[in-house]
Nucleic acid binder design. Structure first.
Lengths: 212, 212, 212, 212
DNA sequence: AATGAATGAGGCTTCATTCAT
DNA sequence: GATGAATGAAGCCTCATTCAT
């Protein structure tokens, strides 16, 4: 087999792998980890059960890869967006907004990341914890920076970061589970104000932030 | 069969029903909805599978009843405690504290209410939503009262209530899932300050609240 | 439920269990351990897959029980028959004859015990070894007795017992695997003479044994 | 493609085939027929699954070829060694010793030949039978020669040959399956004496055989 | 009321074999 | 000749639910 055709084969395999990941994403999001059948994933990926197992040794490993890469993408996106701002408060604003609007635009992704992983078994506990930690850590880092810069008074940044993430999380999840989902972005101004005010940011600074 | 013996029988049946609920509570908390086997519940209730199915038509119904009664008890407890305070801010303080410390004292209950129900299938979505709504509603009611009393400025109480509950929820869940769980109550002062400050409560009023 | 009906239930359950063992015996004998499907066992036992798994936690456990009880029965039978004779040489004769004729009469049992268990996985190695050991031990005991009684000269009874059992085993297996199986019993006189002579029994004593 | 390069290619192909046979030997010996995966054989032969299937149409055919060639080699070796002796009794001694010591030195080969083939399915029954027949036939031929030479009295050589092979077989298999395998050769003197004496060889002749 | 045996659909995984490149 | 991706049948096992007693 020549270099070229081998490349073609690899490329096809890679695409198949992606198709499986896409299908798995869809099925997991819709039915949860336990409820998702490998058979159904194979069907939606237009391949066979064996095909799925050729690319992923286990249902679990498939889910884990999904969990990781999806989270990776979101975290990277948030950091990329936040890095554009120099003012710590503006950064926090951008970070919150990015998460909220990304979830709002990808309801299925939100389900996978925030809902399905819970209750999928102890193997995912660690991964989920890492996920929450990454987001909370992101927030905490910004808060600490703001404390160092003298913009806000010293406080338990870890706890506050958890609280912020929790507030965000709850609002997204409620939106996800609501039978009549309101526009997620509408809640943003209130959420932003409450959170920023909560760490002691001046009302004037909050008012100065761009409208969303 | 006489009146008396029927009474005795009914009483025994009621007790059996309670034993099943207790066992189910335990098993669901430990293994999640999907992971919990009816066999195991029956075993822990010292009865048979058939016994469980005599009292509950379905595994689902058993879980739902558990969800409802547990939530009922907690909501009632929170309202009872809050009613003792006349000042709206003190009430919010008491409510937050009650939830946090109750969860802290009943880790299993927290798991059941906050973690297991997710991913248990679409049937529980509605119930879970009602649960979150009840807690958020509780908070929202206090916030509205505070607005009416002129203690805080008008704001979107529904969204803020969700954010508050989310902050609380996240902190409890993180504590639940943490391998090395810190003392949950330790985070309370920070949480309280951030939340109250977030809705514009004077720093002096916050400082005046009792230590926890 | 009264004493009587409970007894009826237990009795039925016991019978079902036996039916499953019988079916398993049949299927294992015909197809070997790996080749035997639980589904097929259930079908032949006129029950369901779940029914099989109610009585036996595992395919393996089912096979093991079969192996053990079948061997138990045969060993017991051999010892019972041998105990009737007082002369050690006559005992050896009876023991050999009992094994050979029992196998001859129960071809399927022979297959299960001597053929199928091999290659059924490492779990059965121990069990099979125990089985061979039991038979070899039986023989060795008689040989030792004969040595003590001065009937045969001292020798390595363990090795000889293995050799005897091996000779027997091979002859049975060859008969089992032969496409055109001769009458197994026909080989007996030759086998008996060779084995007894091999440990130094007088030709006259051998000739004195009853014809078979 | 020229003559030369075709020759080179054929040579390479032959070598690959050998590598596959070696790997298959190793895997079958270790895991048994059913337990051996073609994937694993390909891996150990440093080729691909497709590669294996190019050289052998079937997993079964691969195993059969292995069975045959291995047996061929052993039978040839035994005959070669035996041919060196002129005395029939010495020949029998050499034959027994060759089999025993070859197995002792190649535990894996023994497993393949004596253990794995059983339970590998009905296809191998015939082959296995032929294998045992060849060995028994070898022994029987020597016995018949000894009868003709008047060294031993006439007897049913076929049955005796089976018994001899069985004794040998059992001792090897017990050694194979034993957790704490003794030195196989240690049992040889006893085995030899018992077998030879069993066909009526004079004690003096047995004593005259070389020590092993 | 209670028991526990029985059912059977459905789940995850393995693996011999095929085939396009 | 060789590769490795793909197929799909088949296997073992779990478990919610039913039902005769």
């Amino acid at each position: 087999m020549g270099e070229v055709s081998r490349g073609v084969t690899q490329e096809r395999s890679r695409r198949r792998r992606e198709r499986i990941l896409d299908a798995a994403f869809h099925v997991f999001s819709g039915l949860g980890y336990r409820g998702a059948a490998v058979d159904e994933i194979a069907r939606q990926a237009e391949t066979s059960k064996g095909g799925v197992y050729f690319h992923f040794p286990t249902k679990e490993s498939l889910f884990l890869e999904l969990l990781r890469t999806t989270a990776d993408r979101l975290v990277a996106k948030v950091e990329r967006e936040a890095a554009r701002e120099s003012d710590p408060i503006a950064r926090a604003d951008v970070a919150l907004w990015t998460v909220l609007s990304t979830f709002a635009g990808h309801r299925t992704m939100a389900r996978l990341l925030l809902v399905d992983a819970i209750g999928a078994g102890p193997v995912f506990q660690a991964e989920l914890e890492r996920l929450h930690e990454r987001f909370a850590g992101l927030i905490a880092a910004h808060l600490e920076r703001a404390v160092e810069d003298g913009i806000i008074a010293p406080l338990d940044t870890a706890t506050v970061a958890e609280a912020w993430f929790g507030a965000l999380h709850e609002i997204v999840v409620r939106w996800l589970m609501a039978s009549r989902p309101d526009v997620l972005e509408r809640t943003y101004p209130t959420l932003r104000a409450v959170l920023l005010r909560g760490v002691g940011i001046d009302e004037s600074r909050i008012a100065a932030l761009p409208e969303r």
